[in-house]
Design a binder for these strands. Structure first.
Lengths: 136, 136
DNA sequence: ATAGAACCTGTAGTAACTACAGGATCAAGG
DNA sequence: CCTTGATCCTGTAGTTACTACAGGTTCTAT
């Protein structure tokens, strides 16, 4: 039975990213160096498409390249366990929660400033927002 | 009456940033090119300290350098009005809200995956997290 | 006078791509 | 078979907002 080959463009389209991104993932070791055609074009297989999509999904979930490398190591090497993956996902979730908390505080500060401000054609000198930030 | 002069180091310390950051702000036009000593060291005044702190506070609030440039224009030029500042702050608050919403979705996805996962010493092949992400 | 802190300029590195430039190869239609 | 346009190749530079040197000069305090 034959294995179906994909061009880098097809791979990228499937994973919803640019060809250059795949190049980049290859350079940084996330994606393998695939075999080439006579002319030097990269030839991928279905497994590579899976891998690229995995990388992209993880990126969407906010994982950094380094973390994804670790996750891929779990997948590539057989001697790892589910618990390790779970721990990383939990850590990631906590990081996200932290970011949310920070942004909530930020939002509050902004809305408070906005609420203080009458807006309109008052001079900048009387603007409470400027006053709140532009001080000694 | 004499004007008190500050070194770049004193300025940076006041604004809780690095000397190099002030250099960077000068290069990018956020901070002015101040007069120098005979030997070439920068000499700042209180107004500059205010400006630097303003920039840093805005950065903490998530404003981008470009946005801060616009805000500083409001301060530097007299023919602007409070309403413009308010509008930018509101826009910023909305952007923050958007980011929060995105992160909340992200968090949910992560926690859902984690909840599915028994963890522990089960093989990676049965890990629901990997299964959720590493698919065709 | 001198030691050591602080300052100077300029370059390169960070993260995760994106955007070319300039050229080669591939697939489809005539 | 040949051509044309799409796709691909490598390599370099740009993006954001800094940070980290290197190698040298100046300032400040004793």
């Amino acid at each position: 039975m034959e294995t179906i080959a994909y061009s880098i463009g097809q791979l990228a389209k499937q994973a919803n990213c640019k060809v250059e991104t795949v190049h980049y993932y290859e350079k940084t070791g996330l994606m393998p160096e695939p075999p080439r055609t006579e002319g030097g074009h990269r030839l991928y297989v279905l497994e590579d498409a899976k891998r690229l999509k995995f990388i992209r999904r993880c990126r969407e979930l906010g994982f950094k390249i380094q973390q994804i490398k670790e996750l891929l190591k779990f997948i590539d090497e057989p001697d790892h366990y589910c618990g390790e993956v779970k721990a990383m996902a939990l850590q990631q979730a906590d990081d996200v929660q932290q970011k949310i908390d920070d942004l909530e505080r930020l939002k509050l500060a902004l809305y408070e400033m906005v609420a203080q401000c009458k807006g309109g054609r008052y001079s900048i000198n009387d603007c409470p927002i400027v006053e709140a930030l532009y001080v000694t």
